[in-house]
Design a protein around this nucleic acid. Sequence first.
DNA 1: TTGATCGGAGATCATTATAGTCTCCGATTA
DNA 2: TAATCGGAGACTATAATGATCTCCGATCAA
Lengths: 157, 157
Amino acid sequence: MLKISKKTDYALMALQHIASVQTGDTTPGRVVNTKEIAEEYNIPLELLAKVLQALSKSGMIESHNGPKGGYLLARSAGKITIAQILESIEGPLGITDCSHEKEGEFCMQREHCNIRTPLLKVQDSIYQLLNNMTLQDMLGGTPLITIQSPTAEGAER
Amino acid sequence: MLKISKKTDYALMALQHIASVQTGDTTPGRVVNTKEIAEEYNIPLELLAKVLQALSKSGMIESHNGPKGGYLLARSAGKITIAQILESIEGPLGITDCSHEKEGEFCMQREHCNIRTPLLKVQDSIYQLLNNMTLQDMLGGTPLITIQSPTAEGAER
DNA sequence: TTGATCGGAGATCATTATAGTCTCCGATTA
DNA sequence: TAATCGGAGACTATAATGATCTCCGATCAA
C-alpha cells in the first residue's frame, strides 16, 4: 500500500516540532530533547531516540550532549526535503526490489521483465514529488506540494 | 521505502502480458492461462494464481474455466490504471496509518499530530500520479506519467 | 459421460520487516 | 562528581509478506 513506516512518521513529527520551536516566537533557538517530543506526541521514548539518532547521523539535525542537551535543526527547514527525511530513516527510496539492484544481482523475473522501465519512471515521479516538498512546507497551514513541471519532465524522458 | 509488494509486481507483469497477447498481431483475443505466465516470468504458479484471482474479483480481468480456459482483460488496457491494479492487490492506498481511519479510531499521536494534513496531500499527489497512468502506457516503450496539473491542484486545496 | 484441464478458495508455513524494549556507555555541565 | 543528556548494541514480539499444499467445482473434448 506504499505505506511509510511509523519510524518515519515519528521522524516527521519530531522534525516538525523542532522546526516550529526553533522558528517560533517564544523560545527561538532552544534545543529540544527526546523526552519532550516523546511526551508531546505519545511516541515510545526509546524508539524516538533511535529515530533522532538516525536523523543526526544523516546530518539533518545536530545533537548536544549533557544536561540541557538535545537537538537542533542542522539547516533551515526550507532546505530539508521530505525525500531526505524518508531516506534517512528507511534507506534509499525504491518502489520495487530491482530499483537499486547492484551489478550481478538479478531478480528471477529480470530476463523477461516487462515492467521494470515503467516502474522506474513512476518511482522517479514520486521521488520528484517528495524532493520538492520541504519541512518548511509542512509548517503552518501553507499550501504545498508543488511539483516542478512533472508533465513535461515525464514526457521528455 | 514506499515499496510495492511482489504480488503487485506479479499482477503488473501478468496484466502486461495478457494485454500484449490480446492486442498483439499473432493471436489476438487468445485467452492466457496461469501456467503460461508463471513459466514465462518465473513466478511461483500458485502465488500467481492468487493474484489473478484477486484481479478477476475486482473486475479487471475475466476468467474462463475448463480446458483451454484462462484470462482475458475485462476492459481495454487504456482503461486500467496502475492505481486500480495496486488497490486490487494491496487494498486502498494509504501512505500513513490514519489514511483510512474510521470514526472513533485514533492513533496515539492524533491529538497533537502535526503531519496528518500534509501527508494526506502527498498521498493525493501520489494517487493522482498512479491514477493517470494506465496499463496501456506500460505497453511498448511509450513515454508516460503525465499528471493532471498537480501544481495547481495541490495549491488550491 | 467421464476424465483431464482449468480457475476458486481455504488453510498452512517460512521468512522478513517492523515496532518496541532493555542495557550499558560516553559526553556534558551544573 | 553526580544527574542528565545522546550513542549504540542486542534483543523480543508481532505483523506482513511470500510461498506452498490441498481440495473443490466448472468446463470441454475425446
